[in-house]
Design a protein around this nucleic acid. Sequence first.
DNA 1: TGAATAGTGTCTGTTAGACAGTATCAC
DNA 2: GTGATACTGTCTAACAGACACTATTCA
Lengths: 251, 251
Amino acid sequence: MVNEQEFLAAYDPGAYPSVAVTVDVVALTIRDGALHLLLIQRGQPPFEGHWALPGGFVRPEEDLTASARRELAEETGLGGERLRRVHLEQLGSYGAPDRDPRMRVVSVAHLAFAPDLPDPAAGTDADAAIWLPVTALTSRQLAFDHSRIIDDGLERARSKLEYTPLATRFLAAEFTISELRAVYETVWGHPLHAGNFHRKVLSVPGFVESTGTSTERGGTRGGPRARLYRASDARLLHPALLRPAREETVR
Amino acid sequence: MVNEQEFLAAYDPGAYPSVAVTVDVVALTIRDGALHLLLIQRGQPPFEGHWALPGGFVRPEEDLTASARRELAEETGLGGERLRRVHLEQLGSYGAPDRDPRMRVVSVAHLAFAPDLPDPAAGTDADAAIWLPVTALTSRQLAFDHSRIIDDGLERARSKLEYTPLATRFLAAEFTISELRAVYETVWGHPLHAGNFHRKVLSVPGFVESTGTSTERGGTRGGPRARLYRASDARLLHPALLRPAREETVR
DNA sequence: TGAATAGTGTCTGTTAGACAGTATCAC
DNA sequence: GTGATACTGTCTAACAGACACTATTCA
């Protein structure tokens, strides 16, 4: 019987099947009232020329989520406080044996919510990176199984807006209730009743708190100046803001 | 410029950092009115003698969830129709660099809901396997980061019961409303109002459907014979069965 | 002035939860 | 019979959603 230390010293990592582990990021933001997704155009095979999620191999000594945050930083050129304001969570892992023609690759997908960001810095990477409206996705051929990962990410995003205050992560630190409503309408893809939404948001404990200030001007098409709010301390919304029941998705 | 086929032929998998990928399973069942968890006692280092989640390395050509199902089958001795009735879903991936002292290991954790099962077959594996009440977990030293995985799994289970009909997966194909209520009470850890629960379950479309039959006898402590139901076709519950608001978990 | 928006009031139907009550069965 | 359970009825408070209305601002 060997003790644990001897066992570790004699341990041969090569005895176990080798798998590459990558992270991919479904990064969402809202631009011009439409939901956008960060994509890169692949510069080398496989899937050369196809669009793909930003991502890459997990480095030694790097945690999974840290790896995703690094990939996001590289592709967006973001750093410091602005990167810290981006919400990042694990979405799920994708490991079908044939999902990458090169070798066995398990990808740990992440989901990110970002406020409106500048166009990706082209200098950081040889690949072209863009924010693409999600409505333009259907016509694109995506690399690997990224189309499925994106579908899962979008559904997770829609669901997260129901029971968490993460919609605020799409906005600047201070925002109006109308801006918050626009986030919900954009992600869910259908209009909400302005008056009811307003009352509902203010009634959920810990969702938003008043800054005491208002916007400098009214809206571009008229209307009074709106009060400004910031995200408060709730991590879950009680009661939740539920999407209207969708019979077709239930069965 | 090489074409894609030439690229793949020249590709060297060893150029990328090697990581081992495992699956671990948080398998839950209900025995004697208490929530139980499947654990194995490790027979070799690291963490020799400690209790751990069932799991193992993902095999080549094996999908992640298929791998989890195989591990579950091996440890429970289950197969065929009984295995197919077990609910299995991906929980999340755990990949902190130092979570395994041997090498970099990323574990894709899964969550399973099983009906009451016989004691694990000891013959299939050298390790001892048991169903342990989750209330007995606090006193145990668990291997790796399995304590955290279990916590995440239990919270996912509690949450899943709210908006999916998966509570039925803890029961036989036919069950009474009281048995279903017992599942909720056990997983959530507090009693529910029998009358309100009864009416609520029957009012949610697609949750349960009547078999037209009743139990042969009343309860062990008296009472009328109960009608029998089976799971119906809903995949989501609308409206959901929400846990009472827990202020402390919200902030 | 006209149109759009911010924010509030009110009404209705649905739901959660408390409570009560009746019928049935084990012991 | 006694006590526990299955199931139903009723009431109340909370909530979602529809609609209406006022005040404010831009053009």
